[in-house]
């Protein structure tokens, strides 16, 4: 088959203990049978491992942090585009989605496609708005409250019993068993991710996740549910297995149909002792375990790029159940000149 040549820029090349999805997204794209993909990595820091993976990343450029504003991001992308002629950008960090959503039309005018949720979809699924989201779409979610001042914690903890989850607006979650702990985590999380933090009812149970892709018209293009088998102290799945739970797929379909979700997503679910699922979080992007979806027969990064390019993409009808991913770390030996190049010139 003649594979369509495309140049795709991918962010989130980091791989710390809370790894970014960039490298597994690239692995999926490189294994595509329909696309011949040239990868342009977009990095923030000079030590992101993906920068140095020359076998799968063809070129890397540093880009400014989202906090520096969309104009400086756009200026940098214009420069990169002038060199690389980008077809598609896949942003993979929560914090950079909003700027990329805002830039969608301007990028399109330059000839660069994205396939992201709308601003409304992005906002209403936000952790802060999750209770309203659950009510609107008839999805069971745990009670939660946004908190801007640590003095509010005492009052809220009278309404919601401990233990409670203290969550950052983008990342991080800690279980607090009393108000003192909650205040401690408030400061820790807000220092890193800003305000508000979210206090969420703690649901005891087994963690499941669903990775999916919606076409923006209410149709499911892809969905793979997993059970987390090995969870780090950061709550990240370091091992998982694909499962065939129809309830999770039905919930995913309901989510896609009712929101007309556009783009990739991850549903974080907790199954309680009554075997009922609560939706803990909706991540509006590809999760770091996306490579399992490729391994079970649903190449979500490939489908995402094809949707972004305006191609007709058929929905995946099946996936292999009982396939596992087991994550590991890998030490690369890197020449100082590579590090020097990216650190000094912002390109490699």
């Amino acid at each position: 088959m003649n594979r369509r040549k495309v140049t795709v820029a991918v962010t989130a090349l980091n791989a710390i203990d809370s790894p970014g999805p960039g490298v597994p997204v690239i692995r999926g794209l490189k294994e595509s049978e329909m696309l011949d993909v040239r990868i342009v990595g977009l990095s923030y820091e000079s030590l992101e491992p993906g920068i140095y993976m020359h076998d799968i990343v063809d070129k890397v450029y540093q880009i400014p942090y989202p906090s520096s504003g969309i104009e400086s991001l756009l200026a940098r992308i214009e420069y990169i585009h002038s060199k690389e002629n980008l077809d598609v950008i896949i942003p993979n960090f929560d914090a950079e989605l909003f700027p990329f959503i805002r830039l969608e039309e301007r990028l399109r005018a330059m000839g660069i496609r994205t396939f992201l949720p709308t601003e409304k979809q992005f906002d209403e699924r936000h952790k802060i708005n999750l209770p309203a989201f659950g009510k609107k779409y008839g999805i069971k979610v745990p009670a939660s409250e946004p908190v801007n001042d640590p003095n509010e914690i005492g009052k809220i903890s009278k309404e919601m019993k401990f233990p409670l989850l203290v969550k950052g607006k983008f990342y991080d979650a800690f279980v607090a068993f009393n108000a003192d702990q909650a205040r401690e985590y408030f400061h820790k999380v807000s220092a890193k991710w800003g305000l508000p933090i979210i206090l969420q009812e703690y649901v005891k149970g087994i963690e499941y996740n669903v990775i999916g892709l919606g076409d923006g018209k209410g149709n499911r293009i892809a969905a793979v549910p997993i059970r987390k088998q090995y969870i780090t102290d950061k709550g990240k799945a370091w091992g998982g297995i694909s499962v065939g739970d129809e309830k999770m797929l039905a919930l995913t379909d309901h989510f896609i149909q009712s929101t007309k979700w556009r783009g990739p997503f991850e549903l974080e679910l907790m199954k309680d002792e009554k075997n009922e699922f609560s939706l803990l979080e909706i991540n509006p992007r590809i999760p770091a375990w996306v490579y399992l979806s490729v391994g079970v027969g649903q190449n979500i990064p490939e489908a995402l790029v094809r949707l972004a390019l305006g191609e007709k993409v058929d929905a995946f009808s099946h996936y292999e159940i009982g396939k596992m991913f087991i994550r590991y770390s890998w030490d690369m030996i890197v020449d100082l000149k590579d590090y020097q190049q990216i650190a000094t010139y912002g390109e490699l």
């Binding site: 499941y208 694909s242 499962v243």
Partner: peptide
């Protein structure tokens, strides 16, 4: 034994 519904 593998339960494909729950992953256990």
């Amino acid at each position: 034994v593998f339960n494909p519904n729950t992953g256990e």
